[in-house]
Design a protein around this nucleic acid. Structure first.
Lengths: 133, 133
DNA sequence: AATACAATGTTGTATATACAACTTATGAAC
DNA sequence: GTTCATAAGTTGTATATACAACATTGTATT
């Protein structure tokens, strides 16, 4: 056999993301929000008002997935949308406030992870992205 | 702010695994199986007869997740279990045969990915694992 | 202007995942 | 030997994800 089955790049990345997600999730218990939802809030914080599809492009998510993720955040009023055809969405005031509360917890988690990864570890992650994009 | 929100290690790993999963998935369309199920079959191929929980340990999966993943593979008779208390599970004959059919497709995908990643890319992935485990 | 097409969002369906609660059987303490 | 605690599996519930099918609207072609 050409490669060892244990080297499967897919399963290894899934496993790593489960491990890392666990770190973030453990900090989110006081909020009624998931690590994935946090990511979308952060993307919106960065990008301002955008078409929904832009989020899928950025995060490599299928249209339908974005649709449902957005819907959950809307339900909690963290996001508002223009009611037009192909509406644009953006953080609500409440969403902005949540982002501000999330940032310190997120930074703690990042500190933890970066102390494990070291400078080089972060570089490796960027390199993987460069090569797989 | 301490870090750029776009640097979130969690969302980046999730994104990478979605990208890579897509590569594997595109090769699996002729089989009624997912990339995740393929991983479990490969683990069983490697480990032989094991307690179910061992799979969770290996892949960093919650008990309940393993339980359901296994159930789906059992439904298609790729896996059999001893009917004892805390049964051990292993590949069935049909499961073994499927693994043999999957390996070439899996190798093709690995070739594709490794040609993107290069030698260094693979090393980076291992380094991330070493540091995050 | 009418029709066809393309792009985007939504919904149906199935799997993946985690957490909490429950079940059950083993093994330990007495 | 009885009771109790622990460990492992299962089920309930909720979110995450993808694909297929559908809906809608703007745009292009004629």
């Amino acid at each position: 056999m050409k490669y060892d089955l244990q080297l499967c790049i897919g399963s290894r990345l899934r496993r790593l993301s489960r491990i890392v997600d666990g770190h973030f999730r453990s900090k989110l218990s006081e909020f009624n929000i998931t690590e994935n939802q946090m990511t979308i809030l952060f993307v919106l914080n960065k990008m301002g008002k955008v078409e929904q599809g832009k989020i899928g492009q950025t995060l490599v998510l299928e249209r339908s997935t974005v649709s449902r993720n957005i819907k959950l955040l809307e339900k909690q009023n963290y996001i508002k949308r223009t009611s037009d055809y192909r509406p644009e969405i953006e953080l609500s005031k409440k969403g902005n406030e949540l982002v501000q509360k999330l940032i310190p917890l997120w930074e703690e988690t990042m500190d933890e992870l970066i102390s494990k990864l070291g400078e080089n570890g972060l570089t490796y992650l960027s390199e993987l992205e460069n090569r797989l994009n």
